[in-house]
Amino acid sequence: MNHQTRLQALSAFLKAQRAKILPDSVGFTSGNRRRTPGLRREEVAQLAGVSPTWYTWLEQGRDIRVSTSVLDCIATALQLTIDERKYLYALAQESGSGATLLKEQLPEISPSLKRILHELRFCPTIITDRRYYIVGWNEAASHVFLDFEQIPSEQRNMIRLLFTRKELQRLAVNWEHFTKGFLAIFRAYYGQYVEDEWYERFLDEMKAVHPDFNILWQQSDVQSAPEVLIEFRHSKAGKMLFHLTSLQVQGSTDLRCSIYTPVPDSSTEYKLKQLIERK
């Protein structure tokens, strides 16, 4: 993302976070004269202990110097989570790694990771890189989601597939909620790798082709590892319940392992076994 785009992303993020905070919750009166939801800029400045003018410049995306200590105060005033703080610091200080990853250089998964995929036989598991390209999956994932082997590697991007494949749109009972979880992780990567212009090109493409994407992108949070309960309505197996656990794979490549564990005391694992044995 170039310098100006980074500042615009910072501006949008600060505005969105400010709008989430109820004035009453931090000691300000709501009143009837507020034109927008959430806090006013001068109220955020007061909570953070900075001048209203300086905070206004920061939220407007002006090119100003920002210290970590001041960002800490703003993050506290906006009640940011750990992941949201990292995102704020990356955008405000251009502190992303800036590492380059070419599309044709998708990372290879190690033999040990392949073994883990195989052993998680009845837990659909997908491994993605930091651009959300799918670089590994197990048989269970092919039965529950898609047969990824039939999709060319350059099109095997999970974010894009969520908006282009009807099978995935029909799978999740609450598709918007399901998709927002992926976008929350994608936004965390977006902040971490602020110098990688691929992200901006990808976002521009998705916004132009898929109007729903822009709406959900604006609503998405920042979260690096959500753990959620997901309900699927599989075309063959019917109702399936999974706990999603997202793990970061340590090593030279920035990989994520997303494991969908069948909910205990549900029929999900039995149904999954039936799907696999039917092949």
Score class of each variant (00 low, 15 high):
residue 184 A to T: 05
residue 115 R to G: 08
residue 108 E to V: 11
residue 274 Q to N: 07
residue 106 L to D: 08
residue 21 I to R: 04
residue 119 E to C: 06
residue 48 A to Y: 01
residue 141 A to V: 04
residue 70 V to L: 14
residue 32 N to V: 10
residue 19 A to P: 03
residue 268 T to V: 13
residue 192 Q to R: 14
residue 243 H to R: 14
residue 113 L to V: 13
residue 162 L to Q: 09
residue 97 S to D: 13
residue 267 S to G: 06
residue 273 K to L: 03
residue 108 E to W: 06
residue 52 P to Q: 10
residue 42 E to M: 07
residue 242 F to K: 02
residue 165 R to P: 11
residue 147 D to C: 13
residue 264 P to S: 14
residue 226 P to S: 03
residue 7 L to T: 01
residue 201 R to M: 08
residue 260 Y to A: 04
residue 152 P to N: 11
residue 167 E to R: 15
residue 184 A to M: 03
residue 39 L to I: 09
residue 16 A to Q: 12
residue 76 T to N: 10
residue 23 P to H: 12
residue 211 P to W: 03
residue 246 S to N: 12
residue 38 G to V: 04
residue 180 K to V: 04
residue 20 K to D: 08
residue 57 W to V: 09
residue 148 F to D: 05
residue 153 S to E: 14
residue 130 R to H: 15
residue 75 A to P: 02
residue 95 S to K: 15
residue 219 Q to P: 06
residue 196 D to Y: 10
residue 110 S to P: 02
residue 244 L to P: 00
residue 7 L to Q: 07
residue 116 I to A: 14
residue 125 T to V: 06
residue 184 A to H: 02
residue 253 T to G: 02
residue 56 T to N: 07
residue 112 S to M: 09
residue 199 Y to A: 02
residue 276 I to N: 01
residue 187 R to S: 05
residue 156 R to H: 13
residue 221 D to W: 03
residue 197 E to A: 13
residue 64 I to W: 12
residue 142 S to H: 07
residue 249 V to Q: 10
residue 128 T to L: 05
residue 147 D to N: 15
residue 265 D to E: 15
residue 79 Q to L: 12
residue 270 Y to G: 06
residue 259 I to D: 00
residue 79 Q to I: 09
residue 6 R to C: 07
residue 126 I to S: 01
residue 126 I to G: 01
